[in-house]
């Protein structure tokens, strides 16, 4: 049991936790956070895979993760923006009905 293997399994577990959160959590922001946790899990798995051979570090998964991180931020920002806009509409309609 090398530490890379340990980290790979940890990544998978984080993915599972995130998936559970996406399905079960109720608030949209929690769902977004859960998606991000899933992402962190996959990234960890990839990076642990790159380190399987203790002598060689494979840079390709690192590049994939870098790309993935930027894409994750982009998706998160869009989802948060949509959430805030829905909230804004709800709030203004509430104030009108008062």
């Amino acid at each position: 049991m090398t530490s890379a293997l340990l980290y790979a399994i940890a990544g998978l577990a984080l993915f599972a936790i995130g998936f559970f959160g996406v399905v079960v959590a109720s608030h949209v922001m929690r769902k977004i956070l859960a998606l991000n946790v899933m992402g962190v899990g996959i990234f960890m798995f990839l990076i642990a895979c790159a380190k399987r051979n203790p002598l060689v570090v494979d840079p390709l998964p690192h590049a994939m993760v870098l790309t993935g991180i930027v894409i994750a931020v982009a998706g998160t920002a869009l989802a948060l923006n949509l959430m805030v806009r829905i909230h804004h509409i709800d709030q203004s309609s509430q104030e009108q009905s008062k």
Binding site: A50, R52, N53, V56, V57, P59, P61
Partner: peptide, 10 residues
């Protein structure tokens, strides 16, 4: 699995 991936090629 594939032990070293693309590391040698890179």
């Amino acid at each position: 699995g594939h032990n070293t991936g693309l590391a040698p090629l890179i």
